[in-house]
Design a protein around this nucleic acid. Structure first.
Lengths: 232, 232
DNA sequence: AATCGTTTGAAACGCTTGTTTAACCCAGGT
DNA sequence: ACCTGGGTTAAACAAGCGTTTCAAACGATT
């Protein structure tokens, strides 16, 4: 009844509301919902403990708001690339994969906004449906459009979806299980291994090769396609 | 100092120790470390609250033990497939992917053991390194071996690793972000979409096509490979 | 300057958490 | 029969949690 007394008093970052949202997002992202305490959040935001209840009602609604806030903020930070009308589809695919990896992996270290969204994907709560509808489904639609253009409409929608998920899954692994991936790579290679560009290049090439548009990784003898399961 | 009074008094499932481990694993898997309470765990295991401190010292050590227990149990449930000496590499790849997806997605619903391991992968704790060394690295090695055999040793190790991660990532997405994937697929297709076999078939075919061993998904004109970025 | 609604502050309230205590039960050895 | 010691129990413990309280401080309006 007394929540959200006024929408936005000042658009500056000194607004206690956005300070709490930002601090809450970081805390939730790295500690999880249960482990993050409102005391720590308020301490980081420089406000009193009562502020979170005053502005958001309770911890749960603060969490939902912080997820939406993080999502909107990250979308503004790394916008979706736009292409000129004549841009070839393979270039679009490479751009798409590259920007997705940039958004996921960030510059120096993974941005906390994505970490918060990851938690939602892996264990969905109420905020997840909104996240999918506003953020993920449109991006997925763009990817499907690129793929459809790439194969010239030769594949049914169900197969395009599978291929799209194959591309997303490859990128997703580096972000979601990045620490484990790093353990599987020799220590002197992990730095180059976790850089977005090489990953994007590999994923794009892998997908284009699977679609028959780029050269396959191994060329047994050029275009000598053998049936599955034939002995070598 | 009083922990682990005896290793295994009776190998039956009536041992309070394994009852606690099993209940703790399920609780940790679906609620997370912080949200899971020792009271709920002990209630599910049918023991007194003091039992967890008596047998494991504290909650944290119980968690680590339950992760190792779940790992060992799941490894016993779905062992790694073995192949006769002359088995063709593509068949091995398909078997490998299929068993990995079976292990991840399970029969009717995802097994809690894997859910617990997922949490470790996504936010590693002390138990993670052990998990990687004992469980993940050997499996990854097998996959790299299959891939190396598949391309006839034509690719360097670093590239084989990338391809291996591409395969694992595709499967990983369905398990880790399964709920979100389901939201992106029409409701009348999700049942077939989340079944392990079709996924395994797609992932295998995708990888073989990318390697140039199976037919590509789209055949623009048989073997007309165009350079990346050329307009259609 | 007085007033009123809004925002902030320190302290306290229940409640749940992980952990500990101390009594109790019950076989086995002497 | 009596101790003995590992196993189990209910009850209590201190600490930390989210949340509430209520009064003081603030800022614009009259």
């Amino acid at each position: 009844m007394s929540a959200t007394p006024r929408p936005k008093p000042t658009d500056a970052a000194s607004d206690p509301r956005v300070r709490i949202l930002s601090a809450a997002g970081q805390e939730f992202a790295e500690r999880g919902y249960e482990a993050a305490t409102v005391r720590d959040i308020c301490s980081a935001a420089g406000v009193n403990v009562a502020a979170v209840n005053y502005y958001f009602g309770d911890k749960h609604r603060l969490y939902i708001e912080s997820v939406k806030h993080a999502h909107a903020e990250r979308l503004r930070q790394v916008p979706q690339p736009e292409w000129a009308p004549g841009t070839p589809a393979p270039v679009k695919l490479r751009d798409f994969v590259g920007s997705m990896l940039d958004r996921m992996l960030g510059g120096d270290q993974p941005p906390w906004q994505v970490g918060l969204m990851m938690r939602e994907l892996l264990q969905p709560t109420e905020a997840c449906r909104e996240l999918v509808e506003d953020y993920i489904r449109p991006h997925f639609g763009i990817l499907l459009g690129i793929l459809d253009e790439l194969v010239g409409g030769a594949l049914p929608m169900s197969e395009l979806r599978r291929i799209g998920l194959s591309i997303i899954g490859q990128c997703f692994l580096y972000r979601a299980a990045g620490d484990v991936v790093a353990m599987l790579v020799p220590t002197d290679e992990i730095e180059a291994f976790h850089t977005p560009q090489p990953i994007a290049e590999h994923v794009t090439r892998f997908a284009l090769a699977a679609l028959g548009i780029a050269e396959p990784f191994a060329i047994p003898s050029l275009c000598a396609v053998r049936p599955l399961g034939s002995p070598r």
